[in-house]
Each structure stands twice: as C-alpha cells, then as structure tokens.
Nucleic acid binder design. Structure first.
Length: 536
RNA sequence: GGGUCGUUAACUCAGUUGGUAGAGUAUCCGGCUUUUAACCGGCUUGUCCUGGGUUCGAGUCCCAGACGACCCA
C-alpha cells in the first residue's frame, strides 16, 4: 500500500480493475455467508446437450419432475425482480436455467449471519457471467419454448474475476484467440469442436492400426543426431552429459531400427519439431504419424493410406465427402494415382523423361515459365521444381503423386523398373502435401552413399542436411526386411476435416512471438523461411 | 526476406480537412415473475501499440520499431 496516497486518489484505475475488485469483494461476501467461492466438487447427473435431445418433444409450458444436477459456466444473465434466466454452458452445449425466487428460497435455507435476504438474492447479487455454477432442479420448457432447468438449489462453484468478451460479438481478435485460447474456447463453440474432432482423428487412427496388430512404440525426441528428413532442427543441451542434442525432425530412423529388430508392424503418432518458418500451413512443432510394415511396398502403403484416411473420416464425420473452404473433397477410395513425370507433362507440356542432358531440360523448363534456382543442377531436381511450381497447388482432390527422382529421396528404394527414380509417393489434398511414403531403402551400402552425400551438403553449409547416422547404417547392415513406410501430417488432415484455413486453428496453443522481447538484438536472427524436404 | 492490411475502453467497433476521446456490450446503482443480444432510467470506464519528428496543436501527417493477419519467396 502506498501510504501517501488516499484510497480515493487512484490514478490509472481502469474499468477492468474495477470489475476485478468488485468481484474480489463478492468472493469475500460469499465467504462471509459461510460458503466457499472455490468449491471442491459437484455431482453431475446430466449434460446440456443430452438434456436438449432427451426432452426435445416436451411442449412449451410443460414441466417434468425428473431431478437433474448439472454444472457449467454462466454465459448470460437475464435478471428480473423475483425471476431470472441464466444460460449455463457445459462441455456439450448450453441450457437455460429458470430461477425463481419462491422456489429457491423454499428449498435453500438462509445461511445464518447473512446480510442478504434469501438465497435468490445471493444468486442475483453475487453471481456474474463467467462464474462456474452447479445447479439441481427439474426439467421445464418455458411458455416461450426454451428448455430449462427449473432450479431448486445452486452453488457458485468457482467465482470468476475477469469479465467475458462481448456476449454477442465474442472474441474475434485472432492474436488474442491464440494467446488466450482458454477464452477462445469459452466463447467460440466451433473452436471446441475442432479439438474434439482432432482427438477423434488421432484416437481413430490408433484404433485402426491397433486392431490390425500394429504396435505403437515411442522413440526418442532428444537425439544426438537429427535425421529422417531434410529440415533444420532445434538444438538443446544435456547439462550433466555436456552433450548437444537435437529435437527430432522425424521418427523414421528409429522406427526402422525396430523393423530390423524384428517387429513387423510399428507406428508412432507424436510431435515433430522443425526450426523453420511459421505460416498457415507450418507450426514449428506439429504432429505426424509414421507407420512401417515389413514385407510390403509403397503400393500397399497407398492402399493403407486410403483406408486409414477414408475410414477415420467416415467414423468422425459420418461421410467420406468433406467440404473444405467451399470445395467438396471426395475422400472415397480409390484415389487418383499419377506419376510425377505424367503430372508435370500434363501441366507444362514437358516430358522430362526424354531429356538426357541437363542443359536442354533447363532451357525447356525456362521456356515453360519455370524459375530455376541456383542449386537446381540435375534433371531430377528440375522435375521437382516443375512439379512444385506447375502442379502442386492444382491437386485439390486426393491424388497420389508417384515415382520421385532419387536426388530428393535419400531414404527410398530405387524403382524396380525406372532408373533414376525411387518407389515413393506423396499424397496431395487441397494443394497440400498430406502424406509421404516409400518402399524403404534396405541396401546399407546404397544408404551409406546417400547419407554421405547429405553430410557433404551439411559440411558445405546446408542447415537442413545432417551427418551420417552410423548406428542406423549398422542396423541396416544386420539386414532390414523389405518394408513399406508411411508418414501422414496429422495437423493438415485435421485442418481438412474441420474446414480450418490455418494450422493454428487445429493446434490448441500455436507458437507466437513473445510479446515482450523488446530488445534481443544480440541474438541471432533466423530467416526461417525454408520448407523442409522429404521426411515422413 | 518482400508486399498489403491492421493495432483506439474488458469485448466489438466508429472517429470527418490536424482543433476537448465516441457508440454498443459488459460493469455499477435503481425498477421489473416468461426472458432468450430481455427491457426502462442513471453512473462509470482510455499507455489511442511503442519511440522519435513536423506543427501553436497529432488518434489523425512523416520516420523507425513491436505484435498480428493474409499473400509471395
């Protein structure tokens, strides 16, 4: 307390402070009544949505004596002299509370020493929108047709100190929605629904795989060498071991070790970290599932991808057709399959398979309006550039692009028929890469040569390349059975199924810049504008 | 990294040619037994994102920066 300042003379006293102070006073008044403004429990018998469904046919004015006990947050208050209507929101939805002075005061005794008269007045004076309330009562549909709990008993279970956003406009400021997701969740029910769907998707995928005898095995997040994708890793440090560690950029290399060890069907659904830019499609931490199955190839993985995605979609949405940003996406199998060469030829008129030297391929590409970057020095990379620039964004309906150049696929097995290509596919939906899969490379000497080429790139300064994982090569030398591998981007799949335009809409707490990093000029600035290649 | 737009009360937003900072909601006080964005009457609420500059005077104009959204690389 500032001794020199009188209580009346408080500069900068904002309206928010006043509201908060008023509510803190109410906390005191509740305690003075011998009640606890932060209760321990409330026995719940029902939820709002279930009651709305159960009593759908109850006519206006009708009352049913079924006793219910529910709890939730007060979202709206309409208070009359001796009557009040509250809207109570629980996880499932909302239901109106019909609060009548006569009924409440008859069933709830007036606490001793009260300076308020009657329980109804306690409710009227001490509750606010935002408080967590527990109520008991029976069911009644009001004359105006609103299903209500006709309350006989209540308790303020948790007193809220801060006001809710505008009851009509809600919270629309995107930054506040992400920074204070709890407020977003309180006032925007569709946001809660997106995370409900997300949970059903991950549970559904796990169930699908577990019933087919796949094992989920957890592999390290902290690794001494990042690998399994071309991406810039986060670097951290173990203090006692005095060892630099990386957060994983993929789960690939460890899951393959498990296949070497004798497991035939494994997967891991978990968090991946990539130290890259942030956009509507990228968050530095995101969720992937990688699946590995011995004795199958990438054709089998295509079927598996179709089956997982379509069956989970059916399970979660009751349909395999989804509407995404105004476009209907049909996820009913089978999906279109087209080789990368065919797709590029279709879009640009150039058949890259017929070129034998880079120079003529490059001039043909440039004639077709394809920008060729400096580090693009092979026909295979040129093909990939052409694909990214001319094809990718047009792949709206689910499409498997197959048979990638070996240069951009260091972990995939050479194509059994097509020299220079590998047995790989990526799945595109609404122009976004959603899954990636190979017939896994099992030849340890070929794998060594490709990883050493990556290590050379790292030595030359490529921050997305990594050193050779010798232990992984040792595992391959013991012998890995023929294996199909698959990675699916869970966030992008959930975006599709929730009709979300941004990845931040499906990540509960997306990464945002700190608001008070005023001056950190000594720190390295990260361009963070690169997108990772390969990797499931 | 580049571009466009934005940042004003707790929330949603106005703010004219540079001339006293506004509305609705919420809160608070009073009234009310059928409301559902309840209604009626009254009161209160500001780091106009930050820092400079121009000017007699800046929410408004100029410069730099922070944060966010979208697009591009």
């Amino acid at each position: 307390m500032a001794g020199t300042q009188s209580p009346d003379n408080q500069p900068n006293k904002s309206n928010l402070d006043e509201i908060r102070q008023t509510r803190i006073q109410k906390v005191g008044q509740i305690k003075d009544l011998g009640l606890n403004p932060y209760c321990y429990k409330w026995e719940i018998t029902d939820h709002a949505q279930q009651l709305q469904e159960k009593y759908l046919d109850l006519a206006p004015g009708e009352e049913i004596l079924d006793e219910v006990s529910i709890a939730g947050r007060i979202m709206a208050r309409r208070v009359f002299g001796k009557l009040a209507f509250f809207e109570l929101q629980d996880e499932t939805g909302r239901i109106q509370l019909y609060l009548e002075k006569k009924k409440i005061n008859n069933t709830m005794s007036d606490p001793e020493g009260s300076n308020l008269i009657g329980a109804f007045n306690h409710l009227k004076k001490l509750s606010d929108a935002g408080d967590i309330l527990g109520v008991k009562g029976n069911i009644k549909r009001t004359e105006k047709g609103e299903l209500s709990v006709y309350v006989s008993e209540f308790a303020i279970l948790t007193k809220s100190l801060l006001p809710l956003p505008d009851k009509w406009h809600g919270l629309s400021d995107t930054e506040k929605r992400y920074r204070q997701r709890y407020v977003d969740l309180i006032v925007n029910p569709q946001v809660r629904n997106a995370f409900r769907i997300r949970a059903k998707v991950t549970a559904g995928i796990r169930r699908y795989l577990e019933t087919r005898d796949f094992l989920e095995i957890e592999t390290p997040v902290l690794q001494s060498e990042a690998g399994g994708a071309e991406a810039r890793p986060f670097i951290t440090k173990h203090n006692t071991l005095d060892m630099e560690l990386y957060l994983r950029i993929a789960t690939e290399l460890h899951l393959k070790r498990l296949i070497v060890g004798g497991f035939e069907k494994v997967f891991e659904l978990g968090r991946i970290f990539r130290n890259e830019g942030i956009s509507t499609r990228h968050n530095p931490e995101f969720t992937s599932i990688e699946v590995y199955q011995a004795y199958v190839d990438y054709h089998d993985m295509m079927a598996l991808t179709e089956n997982i995605v379509s069956s989970v979609t059916q399970e979660v949405l009751g349909n395999t057709k989804v509407s995404y940003q105004g476009t209907e996406i049909d996820l009913t199998p089978p999906w279109r399959r087209v080789t990368m060469h065919e797709a590029v030829a279709e879009a640009s008129g150039i058949d890259f398979a017929k070129f034998t030297d880079f120079a003529s391929a490059k001039s043909a590409a440039e004639d077709a309006g394809i920008a060729v970057p400096e580090d693009c020095q092979t026909i295979g990379k040129l093909l990939n550039e052409a694909f990214e620039q001319k094809v990718e964004s047009s792949l709206i309906q689910p499409t498997f692009i197959t048979d990638y150049p070996v240069e951009i696929s260091p972990l995939a097995k050479p194509h059994r028929d097509k020299p220079g290509l590998v047995e790989r596919f990526e799945l595109f939906i609404v122009g976004r890469e959603t899954a990636n899969s190979f017939s896994e490379l099992t030849d340890p000497l070929d794998q060594r040569a490709r990883l050493e080429a990556q290590a050379d790139k790292k030595a030359a300064g490529d921050v997305e390349a990594h050193d050779v994982d010798e232990d992984f090569l040792t595992a391959l030398e013991y012998g890995m059975p023929p294996t199909g591998g698959l990675g699916i981007g869970i966030d992008r799949l959930v975006m599709l199924l929730t009709d979300s335009p941004s990845i931040r809409d499906v990540i509960a707490f997306p990464l945002l810049k700190s608001q008070n990093n005023q001056d950190k000029s000594g720190l390295e600035t990260d361009p963070g504008n690169s997108e990772s290649k390969e990797g499931k």
